[in-house]
Amino acid sequence: MVVGLDTEIKKRVKGNKQWMISRCFVFDGALSHETILNGSVGILFADPGSEIGEILTKEAGPTGLSANPSWAPELIATCFEIQTANPEQYPEILNRSFPFNRLAPVQKIQDNERLIYVIRKLIENPEESTNIEELALEIGMSESWLQHEFKNAVGLPLRAFRKWFRIKTAVIAIKEGSNLADAALGAGFYDQAHFTNAFREIFGISPSVVFQKGESIRWYIQNEEIEKMLRLP
């Protein structure tokens, strides 16, 4: 989800000539699209399989892209509040804002040991190019079963999840001070160009634009959902 704090945002699905214009867009991370941003923006990148991710998936709708949800003004107000708050206040501010304050239970995978094994292998070794057929053999199931069950439980195809988690890993590395090239390699991308293309596919904009030198970024990264799914200590 992305919101414009100073002005409206432009988005269009790749291949379309017509631009959509709105202060707020909710979109599927697997949707190939383009974005034009001006001024300050707020971006929420929700974990697949999380409660927030489920809310945003429903809001994005069957086309994977929707504009101006009813709660957009509330979210914009929250972004402005974060701009003037201290980092230790972010969790409290977000917990009383949509969609964080209206979570409903969604399907979890704690009882599926084979899927837990697969997801743990993907997130603990993001730099490895894991073969899906080999993963299926390791857990004693067919490749088609793994693909089907993974998407049902997590909400994304396995390859899309792997790309999402690599992008998240790279973004966390950038937050901790890595440059784009080092962050890309550490997250399992072939090079910076590979990371740029994957990032652009999801957000519709290059990471070099988002993480420009001198730009002020207010970060809040929460890994709680993945830890719950995998029952990590």
Rank of each mutant, 00 (worst) to 15 (best):
M1S: 09
V2G: 00
L5R: 12
E8W: 08
I9H: 13
R12W: 07
R12G: 10
R12K: 15
V13N: 01
K17Q: 09
Q18L: 10
Q18K: 15
M20F: 11
I21N: 08
R23S: 11
R23V: 00
R23A: 02
C24T: 06
V26E: 00
F27N: 05
D28E: 11
G29E: 01
A30I: 05
L31K: 06
S32V: 14
H33V: 04
E34Q: 15
E34N: 11
T35H: 11
T35A: 05
L37M: 09
L37W: 12
S40P: 10
S40L: 09
I43E: 01
L44D: 04
L44W: 10
L56W: 02
P62D: 12
G64C: 04
G64Y: 06
L65G: 03
L65V: 04
A67N: 06
A67L: 04
W71E: 10
W71R: 08
A72D: 03
L75T: 07
L75W: 07
I76A: 01
T78W: 00
C79M: 15
F80K: 13
I82T: 07
I82S: 00
Q83D: 11
T84Y: 02
A85G: 06
P87I: 01
E88V: 14
E88M: 10
Q89G: 02
Q89F: 07
Q89P: 04
E92F: 05
E92P: 01
I93P: 03
I93V: 12
L94T: 06
N95M: 14
F98G: 01
F98R: 00
F100T: 03
N101H: 01
A104Q: 13
A104C: 06
A104S: 10
P105T: 02
P105N: 12
Q107K: 14
Q107A: 13
I109V: 15
D111E: 12
L115A: 03
Y117A: 02
V118N: 02
V118K: 03
R120A: 03
E124W: 05
N125C: 10
P126K: 07
E127I: 10
N131C: 07
N131R: 03
I132Q: 05
E134R: 08
L135S: 04
G140K: 12
G140V: 12
S142W: 09
S144W: 05
S144A: 13
W145K: 04
E149P: 00
N152H: 12
A153H: 09
V154G: 06
G155V: 05
K163S: 13
R166A: 13
R166P: 04
K168N: 14
T169I: 02
I172R: 13
I174H: 05
I174F: 08
G177S: 08
L180D: 08
A181D: 13
A181Q: 13
G186A: 15
G188R: 10
F189Y: 13
D191N: 15
D191G: 08
D191W: 05
A193T: 11
H194E: 07
H194F: 09
T196I: 07
T196P: 04
T196A: 14
R200K: 15
E201R: 14
E201Q: 15
I202K: 14
I202H: 05
F203W: 15
F203Q: 08
G204Q: 07
S206N: 14
S206Y: 07
V210C: 13
Q212N: 08
S216R: 15
W219Q: 03
I221L: 14
Q222C: 14
I226A: 15
I226T: 15
K228M: 04
